[in-house]
Write a protein that binds this DNA or RNA. Structure first.
Lengths: 141, 141
DNA sequence: ATGTATGCAAAACATTTGCACCTGG
DNA sequence: CCAGGTGCAAATGTTTTGCATACAT
């Protein structure tokens, strides 16, 4: 499928790389940690090393194929870069991730960076809360 | 000074705790990592263990005395909680941290969480860019 | 062929924890 | 005095790296 994307990035089209892309593509939760990916592949009977997963994800990030997010909880999560910028809403109870985009916020961010004399290169905005699952709502402090 | 704050939190007023509070208060960069604090104290001739720094910071965070931020770069940074919520602008070249608050963004965040069925509990917004130091500007990609 | 990728094991970090000793109230 | 705090060293969890082997082109 996107073996062309790999070539474009100067990366050889190998089985582990294709499998990782496929998994990120097909997973219902399209935000996965390196460990999630590794487990998922091992469970599917693939032969792959955790180190390879990390290496491949790092290369994919550099190539702009995936994005890395450092949500709370130690492990970084990765998602395919579909080219549409968005931010995240994460449920602190069940871990569900919802994406959103808000033009007003994006504008304000640019304006603020400018105001403070910065040339903005990137930003990270993550909202944490409880999603509408009753199980999660129970845990409300 | 704020030994009262410690007592209020049910924490004994010990030398390491006071020193850590003082250092966070007096440091020009008031965003410091556990390692920064440790080094700073050791360099001042204090006797303290890195584990204590981490333990104390974790307790302070739980007590609402400090805030922990997970900026890019592996190490968490801590700052005194002065009770005024703000977000951060971080220079990717020199590490400088500038604080800001934008009511419009805060409102939009609430509205978005609501719209998606979430009860927002917290958020993290960090803008990354190059500050106005000429040295940093040179590194513009 | 030949340079790149991979898997494994070991290393590198940031952070946490167990435990014997010390200290504040 | 005694619960709680501290320092050290060892454990943990995540991510990275060295190296010999395997694979894509």
């Amino acid at each position: 499928m996107q073996s062309s994307d790999l070539k474009k990035a100067g990366l050889k089209v190998t089985l582990p790389r294709m499998k990782i892309l496929e998994t990120l593509e097909s997973s219902s939760e399209h935000h996965m940690s390196a460990e999630d990916l590794y487990r998922s592949l091992i469970d599917s009977g693939e032969e792959i090393g955790l180190a390879t997963v990390y290496r491949v994800l790092t290369q994919f990030e550099a190539a702009g194929l995936v994005e890395r997010h450092n949500f709370e909880g130690g492990q970084a999560v990765f998602e395919l870069d579909r080219g549409e910028h968005h931010d995240h809403l994460v449920c602190v109870s069940c871990g569900k991730v919802v994406e959103f985009y808000d033009a007003t916020i994006e504008e304000r961010q640019e304006a603020i960076a400018d105001e403070k004399g910065f040339v903005m290169q990137d930003h990270n905005m993550t909202l944490y809360g409880l999603c509408n699952d009753p199980e999660c709502r129970k845990k409300g402090a």
